[in-house]
Amino acid sequence: MNVQPTTNALQEKKYIRSNEPVFWGLFGAGGMLTAFLTPVMVLVTGLLIPLGIIDADHLSYDKLHGFASSWYGAAIILVLVALPLWHTLHRIFHSLHDLGIKRGRDWQQVICYGFAFAVSVFVFTLLLQMLTQ
């Protein structure tokens, strides 16, 4: 008698697949980049150049502009900007939940990932413009 409803309940159970793998993938890749590259960047721009160990000329506007205007330079810059950004906003989105801010999770998601998306597209267009100039 009791078995029937239970089996029905089990069969009726609906599983909804989360889209999180997409954001988790970007989060992971961005985190990896940030973890490896931030210390190097801090070392170069914060210590080695001010101390004169590396010639500041290597990071002059013209040199960097040239780098950003090459296709491989543009690709590297896009990855360096976009991935850590997706990482950061994913983290912020989950931190809002951790802080117990339950209201408007949908909007929080749209704003967080929307921002990362918008800036990624912006950087992409900017670099594309420089490339095709």
Binding site: Y15, W24, H94, D98
Partner: peptide
């Protein structure tokens, strides 16, 4: 995997 793939599955874990 249907249980795992849900928001309430592994994706609630940070």
């Amino acid at each position: 995997m249907k249980i795992v793939n849900q928001e309430q599955g592994v994706w609630s874990c940070t």
